[in-house]
Design a binder for these strands. Structure first.
Lengths: 195, 195, 195, 195
DNA sequence: GATGAATGAGATTTCATTCAT
DNA sequence: CATGAATGAAATCTCATTCAT
């Protein structure tokens, strides 16, 4: 029994998820049909239904694994004092997660409309709200709110916007993070209505 | 009685565009069927095809009117010196256009994947590239590039991200613009690698 | 009033027929839409309906002019003695009519299935029956019947079958006619079961 | 009871082909809709698409089986000396194939226009060219070419032209074949310009 | 674990036709 | 003589899903 290798149980489920994410990113969720997924996998559509109850559940499963670490990160941040250093550390770790699941986040970014009524959207929306609340000072000015929003948006959308810029991805991530820090710092001080 | 009757001269084309944009924003392009548009308009599907050759051409027509003013703005900016004041003025006018076509820009924002292979995407992508080039100093550092990117992204995505925040939309636009100015200013000075 | 030229009354009707026949020959009747005809004419579909009640009536009108000369030819032949010379003369004149309306006959040839339930088919079918009767000796053998059939079929289908053969069309017509004469002559003698 | 039940193993594909050919012959290809085929089969339209990717592929499949025997026949003839006897034997076998697929050849005959741009047309056209080349003497006169053409055309179109003539179909085929032989013989001798 | 066969709903699109102007 | 606007019907095709095997 022992020693039958690392992938004892069928990895088909995993492969479905992989290929589905590829296609979802390339084409969007609606435009990707189960036929396509099945063809790339070289199995029949019916086989997909052995592993997933519906098309949507494939999508949900893709998000499932990523929610937990995000929740852990938020929980961690809640136990910390709201210092600038903590907020920075939070963004740093947040960026790590973005990096680790960049395809998925790209998919979210580019398919917001489709995700909106798929419940999964809600799930992530509420995490973003939590995140905003963590970054903001209590009772923030509108300008500070905007700064934090900009910090987050830039992290999320920045990599895709910089796709055509040459350079090491790691450096780009660093640059994005630094600009986020600037915005965050300004918001943290409560610099006022963008004097 | 006068002036309130049904519009004699067919404005059906206009109404199609209006309702289509509504539905595209609500549901995305793919998920919106011509049946839906026709039903809301209380005409038959075939009527849509009298006014537009294909579904895609409805979408294209929505963009057509907005490209011109954007091109004019870019052309104007190109004739100006690249001072910070000009760049600010540019962003101010840019924001006016975003405001004037907010539904359309929201649609773009939330349906990037679907737009990607619809040619219309290309059209706007190239305008964004032009815009970036206008805002950037010659031979910019990566950090400055990121700042400009963040400035633009925030303008584009900011309003939707702030949807749940209470407050006057005008004030929100002002706040977004100011934060963009901060980022722009930092990039204009070439403040270096986010000191 | 006099002297206003040869085409006093609108020639649109004529142009519709021309273009329609072009398209019917190229694509078949079903596959040719009124939209196409209208576009080539650079008028609207509705204009077609001013000149023709239905699509089918365009087709019918194309045949109308050709039935009369055919009927005259048949009537002429009926008054003649059934000598071989007369039959030959009949085929000669018949071929002239085929030449004069070659596009139309090509259309008939290649779209028999579509014509079958369009009444126009019937009309011509009965002329062909009349023609056969004229060519055949009384109480003919099956073989002679086949010879006459072959003679007619070859005249009808021959030109299109010889399309790729180089040479003067007139010569081709002559050759076809001569082979028809051979078949006709054999049938006229009642040569028996193809000894 | 035994052996009369419903066929267990799905022969749906075969049944689609059968019914489709029936309808194509009756009405033509364009005029036959998939709805009609599906209704006669008592399955849904979607079921057709399970078995055939497109409507055209149903048509193509009908031809597929018939091309092979024809190619074999042509190959056989190419290995033989070009004597009159061989040519006759060739036509005899050719006629057998026409008989065996008479519905399909009737369909071809009556729907040439529709077939023209369906690639399948090309396929058969080239076989006819091959056949002509086999029957013709080297460097033939136009008249001989016409005779061979007439021989082939008559075989193809003759049966349908003789539909209303009473008599045993076998006898009709024999008569057609004999007249073809006459034409062939004349062409074989190179009888000259239809003396 | 997976397939083969099928379905019901619905998509985009095209067509011949009508009619007020 | 002709157009602009619209319709109802139907076409081809795709999709997510089901189920017996």
């Amino acid at each position: 029994m022992a020693g039958t290798g690392t992938q004892r149980k069928s990895d088909t489920r995993q492969r479905i998820q992989d290929i589905a994410l590829d296609l979802f990113v390339e084409q969007g969720y609606e435009k990707t049909s189960l036929r396509e997924i099945a063809e790339r996998l070289e199995v029949t559509k019916a086989a997909l239904y052995y592993h997933f109850k519906t098309k949507e559940s494939i999508l949900v499963s893709l998000f499932a694994d990523r929610v937990e670490p995000l929740d852990e990160l938020i929980a961690w941040a809640r136990e910390q004092p709201r210092t600038l250093e903590v907020k920075q550390e939070f963004l740093r770790r947040y960026t790590e997660q973005l990096k680790a699941s960049s395809r998925l986040f790209r998919f979210m970014q580019e398919n917001q409309a489709e995700l909106r009524d798929l419940r999964v959207g809600e799930t992530f929306k509420s995490r973003v709200d939590d995140t905003m609340e963590l970054l903001l000072a209590p009772d923030p000015s509108l300008a500070d709110r905007v700064r934090c929003t900009a910090a987050l948006i830039s992290l999320h959308a920045g990599m895709f916007a910089l796709k055509d810029v040459e350079g090491d991805p790691e450096e780009k991530y660093d640059a994005l993070l630094e600009v986020s820090f600037e915005l965050l710092a300004a918001a943290h001080e409560g610099r006022g209505p963008a004097a």
